[in-house]
């Protein structure tokens, strides 16, 4: 896929980010340069049949039990928009 303004805008939308119009061209040229560099990996022969499960570490797990918890007030203390005991956001479900 060519690296152009359209691609950068698509990726910024996926990332829930807005890039200032004045900076878009810089983002396009930096993106192009970085992706060209990363393509260096195409030179590495891929002889392995490893799949994702082989490569991603098997992390430790523990029982799903409650060990300690923050109070409701503590959980809400850094939220700018709150309503009583809840985080507040714009309504996401339309009324019928």
């Amino acid at each position: 896929m060519p690296v152009d303004k359209k691609l950068v805008e698509k990726i910024s939308k996926l990332s829930r980010l807005n890039i200032d119009e004045s900076k878009i061209n810089d983002f396009v040229s930096n993106f192009e340069e970085i992706l060209n560099y990363i393509d260096l990996l195409e030179q590495v022969p891929d002889n392995s049949n490893q799949n994702e499960e082989d490569l991603i570490s098997d992390y430790a797990t523990r029982d799903d039990s409650i060990i300690e918890k923050l109070s409701n007030d503590e959980v809400l203390m850094n939220a700018k928009n709150k309503d009583g005991k809840f985080f507040a956001v714009k309504k996401v479900i339309d009324e019928e």
């Binding site: 990332s15 829930r16 980010l17 807005n18 890039i19 959980v75 850094n78 939220a79 700018k80 928009n81 985080f87 507040a88 956001v89 714009k90 996401v92």
Partner: peptide
């Protein structure tokens, strides 16, 4: 911007997506 972090007033945006984009940008 919902639970913590830089956040705009949610009443001033069109929808949740705009809220996320504004906070993150």
């Amino acid at each position: 911007g919902v639970r913590y972090g830089h956040s705009t007033d949610y009443k001033n945006v069109k929808d949740l997506e705009e809220f996320y984009i504004k906070n993150r940008s």
